[in-house]
Structures are given as C-alpha cells and as structure tokens.
Design a binder for these strands. Structure first.
Lengths: 127, 127
DNA sequence: CATGTAATGTTATATTATTACATTAATAAA
DNA sequence: TTTATTAATGTAATAATATAACATTACATG
C-alpha cells in the first residue's frame, strides 16, 4: 500500500484543499465530477485514509479533515481546536495531555487505546 | 424548570437505569410502551436533558448516558473512559486536563467553550 | 384569567452510514 | 507466467441517525 488508489487520492486531495472539515456527502457532491458515484465509495476511501492516518474524523461534527501532520498514527496525541464561528480547525499534539489521560486510565485499570479530543470555541480571528 | 416533563423524565430514568450508553432509537423502542411515539420526542427530551447537564452525548458512539455526577454544567471537566469490549463507560473529571486544554487554547488565541473527550480502550474487567 | 413560554403530538423528510453482492485491479508466490 | 490472494471498485438498496414544520396543549406568572 505505497500509493493511494484513485478514489482514495481523489478524496484525500479534496480534503487537503479544504481549510474546513468536510462532510461525507459534500465530499461526494464535489467528487462526482471526478468519477466518484456513491456514498459507499466515499466512506470506503475515508475509512482507508483514516486507517493510514491521513485523515481524521471530527466526531462532534460528523466531518472529516486531512491530517495536517506528515502522517498520524492512531496512537498519537492529536486533538482539535474547532471554531464555532468560522469552522476553522487546528490540529494539535500535546504529549502532556496524552500522558495525563494515560495516567488517569491506569488509575482505573483501563488500557488506553485511542481518543477523541475536540475543543469547541472561537478562534483568534473570531473572538 | 424545577421538574422534568413526562417525556424528559421517562428518557432520563431509562438512561439512569442503564449501565451503557443508549442510542436514540433504542431509547425510542424502550419508551414506546410508556407513551413516547416518535424520534422527535426522544431527541427533544435528550436536548433538554443535555442542556440541563443531566445527560451527556458520547459523540464517538452517537449514544447518550445519564450524568453520573449530581449535575454537570457544560463548562465541566468531564470526560469518558469507554470500554470497547463491554461498552461500559466511566465518567470522570480532571481539572488538570481541562487546565492543560485551556492553556493550549490560550496559546492559539482561541476562546475555550466546551469539549468532547472520549478515551477508548478496555476496562479493568476486560483486559 | 390573560399571556407568553415550554412542551407535546404527528407527519414527513433530511442526513449520515452500512450491507450485500458481483466485478476488476494489483500483488506476489509457485 | 499462470494462479492464488488481497485490495479496491461499481452499483443498488437500505439502515441508522437526526431535524423540520406546523398545529396543539400544558403551565408558570404577572
């Protein structure tokens, strides 16, 4: 799996070109001119891209963004600042937060696998 | 708004009685015998309960849990440990994490409003 | 008891996501 | 280079999640 397939590449490029998270059906509409025809195709591409760490799902918005790092693994300390006003999104890493979460998990005897961390607010431009 | 309405109470009680997050349509099926008839009614009750801090939405699962504290406000430091295996969920608060997140927001000039923090893994019983 | 707000009931529909199954492409092992 | 295997595709149908719209009823409070 060195290279992305056509559908994967198409979806990935669209996400990379966007400064906001995109919803699956918006991705579908945008890529229909390029040959993608059904939701299934979009979701399959997204699944793969997420697995590869090239795309993240924003759970609180049911939307998807291209990874802004080189390539995230699932085990990363990634989290998001999301602007309520302009929908801009910043992807961040902070080992301190992940360490703290790990510590908490240990206290409860839980084995940490991965996380969703999404902060809503207003970005510097909007407040 | 001292007391919950019938629909709100019905949905709240069901969630309180459950040790797992419940999905909206499961709530609907369970409460149909009690008089609730449509998705709208369930979602309306959930919206209100969330607003009151009596229920939380688990974004990564599109499911809902009763707040295990007295009553969370939205500004709380709440987060969740979710077991992938048994679906058990633990609601926690940790001011340190929230402080850290706030600090990060400040660095980016963002104004923190609220957050979604969901940790997946396996609980002490399942690992 | 009038008035405004909150909640309800009901129907329809929008949005998000998956299943199922047949086919084609790509990879790599014999 | 054929064959086996895995990955990706195409297509249609449908499941699961959530909201819109509008008419009505309950209810707090001034």
């Amino acid at each position: 799996m060195l290279e992305l397939s056509f559908n994967q590449e198409t979806v990935h490029k669209l996400l990379q070109a966007s400064d906001k998270p995109l919803k699956a059906y918006n991705i579908l509409f945008e890529t229909q001119k390029l040959g993608i025809k059904s939701p299934t195709q979009v979701y399959r591409a997204l699944d793969k891209l997420i697995e590869l760490g090239k795309v993240h799902k924003i759970e609180s918005k049911n939307a998807f963004v291209a990874c802004s790092k080189i390539n995230c693994s699932n085990q990363n300390s990634t989290f998001f600042l999301i602007c309520d006003t302009c929908e801009n999104i910043i992807e961040l890493e902070d080992q301190k937060i992940t360490d703290q979460l790990n510590k908490t998990c240990e206290q409860y005897g839980s084995k940490y696998k991965n996380h969703t961390i999404e902060i809503s607010g207003t970005c510097s431009d909007c407040n």
